[in-house]
Nucleic acid binder design. Structure first.
Lengths: 231, 231
DNA sequence: CGAACAATTGATCCTCATCAAACCTTGTGG
DNA sequence: CCACAAGGTTTGATGAGGATCAATTGTTCG
């Protein structure tokens, strides 16, 4: 089933596109559905396409030579990804994009994106804003990783995820669907440490956790952990 | 003394500018000279200007609430900085820019940059490429910080600096002018650890170090430290 | 020459990673 | 519907890698 063009307006980069442009983009794109754990593209592949996630959830990650992986970012629906590499000719993706659940994305040829950019200033500007936001986030995370203790980093990760991907439960709390392993990769630590920290927080009533699931009971308490000077 | 407009062609972002444009930019810019240790702008200031470094050397850094600082990037002559924030209206600089030696920069009003971008596609594209390069570098460094041991990170820092800022000595070696403290901030560690690692390397003849100075004797040896799997 | 600042080096401590084992949860097939 | 397998989670024990602190030594420059 082909994508409804006007829905693309939800993509921040296409916010100021004309309806015609959205139609063009939708028609030039190809929808690709993949299973959980599969990849849209790998780090090092030539940057043939830019993507817009239309269903599911994915993550951008890098792997080091020894095979350890780091999560750079979680992508939710109507976010653009892989476009960064598409801007430059003959570049390769600096990271891999893996589906965290069955997912679908609209793949748009890089050349076509570049072509559009020549005549649509809103596109370059939108992409640039996307990128500046991204730079700021990762700079921030870099600083955190360099200077903050693990507990605080985990708190920050949960807060970020709450804002981006939190799901309200019937009883008014916010639930996140991530495994310990995933949280560890996002905060630059190990699943053991994440588990210990969550247990500790659970004792104090800050969170409630289960298999591949964390419920935030006291966001304010987490903010305190994230912000407060070391005791 | 006003800046020679055509020299601005050396700035990667202005590579495809017309001579006229360079003249315009030079005339709209104001040169600002500051002493070592002073700042061009602080993290959190409104992004009033984009800068081009015309003399000296500077660093981009972030400070956390506790006052610890992290170096994001070293800026050398003819590099643009602070432009990232200038792209967005009403934003604030995500980092501070501090002179590492007496330095001069051409400050260009953000609004003027945005105005130019509307009619000069080369500018948006150039800025975007600058940014993609930057994103890639910091992503890479983020991964390093999360997964690599200190020694390797320090080796990487030295190699990066060698490429960007290395100065050939008469006897054919490459010299870097950085204090232990600065190297520590760049590799996410402490000056003590940097000192120990350098001493160790010196024993093996890889480097030779002095006050605010490191001479790379065997770049290949450093590459080995940076790349090789843990023994 | 002496003051100020950078670097070294040793001793100690602390945070986390790592390893191992047991425990839960979820889903599947008999 | 139960039993079992598979994979996620917890928790304890241990140790390594660096951070931190303190004292000393070197270097530069007025």
């Amino acid at each position: 089933m082909p994508i409804e063009p006007l829905k693309l307006r939800q993509v921040s980069v296409f916010e100021h596109a004309t309806d015609d442009d959205l139609g063009l983009i939708a028609r030039h794109g190809i929808e690709r559905s993949i299973e959980e754990g599969e990849f849209f593209f790998f780090q090092g592949d030539p940057t043939s396409h830019g993507y817009v996630l239309t269903a599911g959830r994915a993550k951008l990650m890098q792997v080091n030579p020894a095979g350890q992986q780091v999560n750079l970012r979680t992508i939710s629906v109507w976010e653009m990804f892989g476009a960064l590499g598409a801007v430059r000719k003959n570049a390769t993706y600096p990271a891999s994009a893996q589906a965290m659940e069955p997912s679908t994305a609209l793949a748009i040829k890089s050349e076509y994106l570049r072509e559009l950019m020549q005549t649509r200033p809103y596109l370059s500007i939108g992409l640039m804003q996307l990128m500046t936001g991204y730079v700021q986030e990762i700079q921030e995370r870099y600083r955190e990783l360099a200077t903050e203790k693990v507990e605080r980093r985990i708190a920050r990760v949960l807060l970020r995820l709450t804002a981006q991907l939190g799901v309200k439960t019937p009883d008014g709390n916010i639930e996140l669907a991530f495994s310990r392993q995933e949280l560890a990769e996002m905060s630059g630590t190990t699943l053991y440490t994440v588990s210990r920290v969550l247990s500790e927080w659970e004792k104090h009533g800050l969170v409630e956790s289960g298999r591949e699931r964390v419920v935030i009971r006291k966001p304010h308490g987490l903010v305190k952990v994230a912000e407060e000077a070391d005791e």
